[in-house]
Each structure stands twice: as structure tokens, then as C-alpha cells.
Amino acid sequence: MNNYDPKDRANIDAMASDAELTTLKRKVFDKACQHRYSYNFQWLGRPIIQFPEDIVAIQEIIWDTKPELIVETGIAHGGSLVLSASLLQLIGNEGKVLGIDIDIRPHNREAIESHPLAHRIEMIEGSSIDPSVVEQVKQFAQGKAPVMVILDSNHTHEHVLSELRYYAPLVPKGSWLLVFDTVVEHMDEDAFPDRPWGVGNNPMTAVEEFLAESDRFELDSEINNKLLLSVAPGGWLRCIKD
């Protein structure tokens, strides 16, 4: 611990290894999800559908790395796009946010495009793993550095693994690739009865396969260990090689 960064890494690691706390936070997380907890929050007027601790962690990463481009798969109401755009605005660089979604509903598009931070945001409608969409993203990313990627769309193993393989090459050493809803692997078998993902078929299983085949990324243990209520345990990936 020091005067410039008051957090205590040893204490963070001790907290993460506390078995009693791990059990308690799992119970709190599961109960909170029953009440659709992540739907309670907005960022600058747009529903963000994220847990507050994950929002804070994203803020820390963007502030530290100051990306020129943030690629986000999954748009929904646009709150995450606005979060990223607002931080880039504060940083003061020329950074942009590029959102991709297979279905951008007209009322959400209108709200995003009329937002005060719309000049920081671009959107592509289409599947994030459609080769033509991937090519558009690659073209948009040319000349922008660093690039950061946030994956939060279809949560099946094959979809997320494809996203990882397509978009990881855009992320340079020192930047980040965030994979959300890895927590699905730790939830009840019947938590998603109307979705094609679940235990054994989700972003966490995709991350595990991806990390086994790529040595460019590693799990950032500090962020992973310090968050109590997060939808992305094991999903905070830092690029460590060119």
C-alpha cells in the first residue's frame, strides 16, 4: 500500500481466498439475480444492465489504458457504450466506441444517436461473428491504438470462442479483452431455461479454451480478486504479448 494507490494487494488476495466470503457472495449474487439486480442502473440516462462493481472496474481499465477504440459486442439499451464514450470524453483523446449487435432496436438506436456523447459512438447491426462484420471492425480499427474489446453478446461457448479468435488480434500488448457473463458457469443448471447457454456452455468455457490455445493473454488476478459481485469472474484478460 502507498500514498498514491491505497489498495492493498495482499489484502485483496486474502479476501479472494476467504472461503466463507466466497460462499456468501455466491449466495448474494444468486439472490440478487432473482430480483434482476443488474437492471436497476443507468449510466448518463441509458440502462446499462451491469453490476456496479463491474462498471467501476471497466472505468479503471479505460482510465489506465486510454484506448483510441473500444469495440463492444452487444448493445442492448446502449448504457455500456455511453459509459465507454463518457470516459473517453473525460480522457480527452480522439477515442471512439464501436458497438455491434445483431438487432439494434429502433428506439434504442434513436436514444443512442441523440445522446450528447453520440459523436463518440458508432454502431454496426449484424452478428459479431459474421465475417463481413468482422472485416468492417478491422477496417474501423486501422490506425487506432490501443484497441480494447468487450464481449457481451450471445453467451454460448461457440459464439464467444469465435469472438475471441476474431477480435483478440486487434488488442495490443498492455490492452484488454473483457469477457462478460463468465459467471454462468457457476450458476444453477436451471438459471437460464429460455437461453441456449448454461453450465458447460458459456463464456467461461470459451475463455478456458481460448487461453489454452493462445499465450498472448492472461487473467488479471488483481481485478478478478477484488470484485465481490461480478458477472465476469475469470473474464478480465490482459494482453501480455505483441
Rank of each mutant, 00 (worst) to 15 (best):
G79Q: 06
L83R: 06
S84R: 04
S86K: 07
S86H: 06
L87M: 15
L88I: 14
I91Y: 01
I91S: 09
G92W: 09
G92M: 11
G92A: 13
N93V: 09
N93K: 12
E94S: 14
G95K: 05
K96L: 15
K96P: 00
L98Y: 12
G99M: 09
I100H: 04
D103G: 03
I104S: 05
P106K: 11
P106A: 10
P106M: 04
N108H: 15
R109D: 07
R109I: 05
A111R: 14
I112T: 04
E113D: 14
S114E: 13
P116L: 09
P116Q: 13
L117I: 09
L117G: 02
L117H: 03
L117Q: 03
A118M: 09
H119T: 11
R120L: 10
R120C: 02
E122D: 14
E125R: 13
S127A: 12
D130F: 06
D130W: 06
S132P: 00
V133Y: 02
V133K: 00
V134L: 08
E135Y: 03
K138S: 07
K138F: 09
Q139G: 06
Q139Y: 04
F140M: 10
A141F: 12
A141M: 10
A141E: 03
G143N: 09
A145L: 13
A145G: 05
P146T: 08
V147M: 07
M148L: 15
L151F: 04
L151G: 01
D152I: 00
D152S: 13
S153W: 04
H155A: 10
H155D: 07
H157P: 08
E158T: 07
E158G: 11
V160D: 09
V160P: 09
L161K: 09
L161Q: 04
S162I: 02
E163D: 15
E163Y: 08
L164Q: 05
R165D: 11
R165V: 10
Y167K: 11
A168K: 07
P169D: 12
P169N: 12
G174Y: 05
G174Q: 12
L177P: 06
L177T: 01
L178M: 13
V179N: 01
V179C: 11
F180E: 09
F180T: 02
T182D: 00
E185M: 00
E185G: 03
M187A: 11
D188C: 03
A191F: 11
W197Q: 04
W197H: 12
G198M: 10
G198D: 06
V199E: 00
G200A: 10
G200S: 08
N202L: 05
M204I: 00
T205L: 06
T205W: 00
E208Y: 02
E208C: 05
E209I: 03
E209Y: 00
E209M: 03
E209K: 14
